[in-house]
Each structure stands twice: as C-alpha cells, then as structure tokens.
Write a protein that binds this DNA or RNA. Sequence first.
RNA 1: GCCGGUGUAGCUCAAUGGCAGAGCAACGGUUUUGUAAACCGUAGGUUGUAGGUUCAACUCCUAUCACCGGCUCCA
Length: 584
Amino acid sequence: MEKNNENLSILRHSTSHIMAQAVKNLFPEAKLAIGPSIENGFYYDFDLEGHTFVDEDLQKIEDEMKKIVKQNLYFEKYEIENVEKQIQKFKDEGEIYKAELLEEHKNDNPTLYLTKDKDGNVLFDDLCSGPHVPNTSYIKAFKLLNTAGAYWRGSEKNKMLQRIYGTCFWNKEDLNKYIEFLEEAKKRDHRKLGTKLDLFSIRDEIGGGLILWHPNLACVREEIENYWRNEHHKRGYVIVNTPHIAKSKLWDISGHSDHYRENMYFIHDDEDNEFVLKPMNCPFHIMIYEANRYSYRNLPLRMAELGTVYRKERSGALSGLTRVRGFTQDDAHIFCTLEQLVDEINEIIDFVDYTLKLFNMTYEVELSTRPDNYTGILENWHKAEAGLKEALDKRGLKYEINEGDGAFYGPKIDFKLKDAIGRTWQGATIQLDFNLPERFNLKYVDKDGQMKTPVMLHRVIFGSMERFMGILIEHYEGAFPLWLAPTQIVIVPIATRHQEYGQKILMKLKNEGIRSYMDDRSESMSYKIREALQDKKTPYVIVIGDNEVETNKISIRKRKLGDIGTFEVDEFINSIKKEIKDRV
RNA sequence: GCCGGUGUAGCUCAAUGGCAGAGCAACGGUUUUGUAAACCGUAGGUUGUAGGUUCAACUCCUAUCACCGGCUCCA
C-alpha cells in the first residue's frame, strides 16, 4: 500500500481497530461502539461501566497497542454469511451497539474485519466495511491524545459513551510535526493572547459569554468597523440603528417565540409587559421597511446595522470570543424581487471575498438546501437554490452542498473560517428568506401596479464582531498589521537627553493620527525594544540617540525584520501613512 | 445541558493534611544606556464560592459557579 495522503485515513482507521483491540485486552467488559478516522486522526467510542478512562489509561492502552502491533498481525475481510447468527453472537458477547449497527446494515452485504496472527488465529474482530492496511507493520507512529464524552449515535437522548481520540501518521517525523503544530497552535489561542495582549476579558460577575472589550481590542474593532461602514456606503447600503429590546408580540409575529424560545432572554417590567432582548435584528429591519411604501424602482433595498444581539447559549457551548451570549452581528437585510436575487447574491459573495482577502483569510463555502420542514412555495425554492448555485459557479468558487441542511425559511451559503487548531467556525452567511416577508405581509408595487411580496436576504460579512475578532487574533498571532495595530509605533529614546527630540517626533506622529507613544521609563533600551516588539507585538519602534538628534533622523526597527536603518522623519511618516492606507 | 479535567497574587506557575511561595508585571530608588530582559528594595492572598471532616485543609468530602477538551446545540 502506498503511503500517501489518500491512504492515511485508512491507516488511521486500522489504528482505531488496534486501539479497540488493546482496550478489549485491558478492559474486557468494554463494549465497542464506532471508531472511524477523522480529519487529523481517529477515535473509538466505548461503553465501559464502572471505569472512566484517565490519562494513565491512555499510556497503558498505547503500550498495549505497541505490543499488538509488534505481533505483526494482518487484517482480513470476512463476509457475514448468516447475519442473524452474527447479530445473536454480538448480543451474546454483550456487544449491543454492534448488534444494533448490524441490524441496520443487514441488507448491505455487511463484513467483519478480522485481526489475525500469522498462524491464522483471530485475535480481534469488528463489524466494519473497511478497507484496512494489509498488516500492522504500517502502524508505526501513533499517539492517543485525549478522552471525551460522546453520545451514542450523536443523539443526546442516548447514553453517553467514552471516546478516545488519537492520531497516526506514516512515520514518526510526521507525527512529531503534528504534535509540534498542536503545541504552536496553543500559543496562538485567542484566549491566551487576549490576556497577554490585554485585548478582552470575561468576568464571573458579568457572566459567561459576555465580552469586555479592552481598549486595545476596541481599537482594532473601530478600524474594522470604519472599513465596514465605508464599504457599505460604497456598495449601496443604508445603515440603520434599532433597539436592543422589543415586546414579545414582535417575536410572536416573526415566529421566533415558537422556534427560538429557549435561546431568548425575557425581561418583565413593573407593569407586566414582557420584552425580549433581541436575538436577531431582522424584525426591526422589517419594521423600518414597513415605514415606507416601496415600488420595484426602490428595490433592492439594502439595510445594514452593527446590531448587538443576545442568545441564551447552553453553558457548555461557550468558548472565548468564538461562541458567546452577547455579540454584534454585522447584519444586513436585502429586500428585492426574485429577478434581482442572483445579482444581489453575487454582489454579497464579492463583498465577502473582497473583505476576507483584505485579511488574507482563506475560507470554505457550503451551500445548504431545502430541508423537509420547509416553508414557502416549492417553485421558489428551486429558483432560489438554482440562483445560489449560479452565483457561486459564476465566481468559480468551490463549494460543498449540504442537502437538506438549509433553514426552514430558505437555503443558504455559509463561509467557514478556521481557527488556530483547525476548528471551523461559521463566519459570513447568505440566507434566503421566504418566510418573514410573508409573516409580516411585506409588499412592493410592481411594474404592473400589482402588490407583490419581496424576497428577503439575510447576510453577514464578518458573522459577529466577537467571533471574527477571535479568529483574526489567531490568524495574526496577535501581531496585527499596521492599520489595525492598537499601538502602531513606540518611540524609544536611548537616554533622558533624547526625550525632547522624541517628543517632537511623537507630536508629528500624533498629528498624522498615528497611534504611538514614547517609552520614557528608566529602563534599558534593549528592554523597551523587547517589550514593544515581542511582548506587545508593536509593528514599529523608533530608536533615537545622539546620532539621530544630530542628523535630525530616526532609526527604525520593524517587527520581525529587525533594524531597518535610519530615515528622514517625513520620509518615514509618508511611508507609514501609505502602509496604513493600503491596509497591508 | 451531558462526559471528563482545571480553578492559588494582575500574568505564568510552585506548595499532597502541619508557618501560602517564586518569576514576570506594579510601586520606590540606583543606573542614562546604541538595537529582543541593568541592579537593589517594597508591596501584593478570605487559595473560585458555600458548607463539612480534622487539633490542623490550598490539600480530603459534599454542593455550587466559572473556565478548558469533547459531545449535543447553533431555527
């Protein structure tokens, strides 16, 4: 078998079998569930009463696996001839999960994979469609990583099993590289950098998932919001503001009271009125639409808002900035005719692509289509899905289709971003909505004088400011490019006598709106440079001493590049201004 | 919400039933520096919270909250 990337998942799957065998050797009462390969490794789920796997167990299991591998066993496919007999055998052995799986796949020509020694003795068998590596000599570089709880068949109604995650590579070198990558990724974690760079905090006294934006991160956000506003104006949007709460009646009309109730926060006043802290901005934008009469000439109407919403997420779901309870969506709703749909979708895709490229971010696209419980007219769904596909194809974007994974109110395109350790998060999304315009009875006057219902698009570019910022921090490892950097330049005077000149430079920078300060503490120059560049990740440091004061120049040190020489003050400021303007 | 882990100074971490400690940061002083950590000193704590066991609890037990890794959820 060739040791390439395609076969790597086969290797990992085989390794999960060896792990299961090892677990059965050490814990014979463990029941096997499933054990597939996954993106960066594999896992196997076990049902084991009376014992919880701990880290020491992982070491023991790993050692047992090594013993098994050394026996030089081979994998052999076995066609199940008598399925009923095999199901009974699983049941007799207590392997109820395997019995359940086989029951389901009884008509799919089910197979077992046997792990045999050279004398042909079967040491382990597992219900499995394969394929596998020929023998255990391929399994050389593996490591068990961690344990976790996981529901049988992924349903929280079922029993929670114990999952062991591991990974395997063709050789030790690749394995070590991967482990190193995991270590490095931990350093990029936005939660660690959030503390280190004084970006944000979350307090018990306030509550989980509620973010305090410290000045540094608020500064980054301000720059991004400025970009966002400008770009919206350029692209023909109107920007609005709406309240944070609304009477529950609004959410009854929108249907959120039914569909989204468990995620909503309710507020009651003294006069027995019930309000809801908004989990969405859409109904408010619809209300603004309703304030006027629109004709086909006015459409599309593109309405945007940086709208802060609150959603009651389950406690276990929260995570740093990427999954929170209060967040600001860079939300927009586009009201248009069915004919305008493809152009509008195209324009949004362009907006997303343009914006993410600005940050050098890569993304994956997913198209989710009509679910079983859809609302609206089937013909419109077909048109809409075709429209979304057309728009994606037109741009030549690669995308995956998730059949039936759309919202009940319309199909959608999602843009997925990856964090430091490769977890994907939903960023931008474009969602069609056939439902809300109907529920709120929205109308426009068409060419023929008839009242018609517009189509509505929900879309976000960043997703939420919080999540995007979390991913952005990891993307840049906290070293923001100049235009975003909270502090752009630190001036380091070598001795006290250079502070006067430093002050002059500082005033010039400040006049140009460059975020900067002079470090006039009684510390060594090296210390200040180290702190500015390494600890605070400042893009530029200006060093001034006798030479600079004498020649009326400044010495520049650039993050990562080091000392880049001396410059005329104006020359440097101009190049900095250009760099900021170009957002590089 | 579920399974498991963790919670000690602003930050990173020690202290396994017997006097809560270190480094960094902060503050005071000395030093006036030529490109990624100068030196001396000072202060900083209800060990997440609430109970319990014990002569004695950061340490053991119970509850609870938060965070971390997953699962589920994210119309």
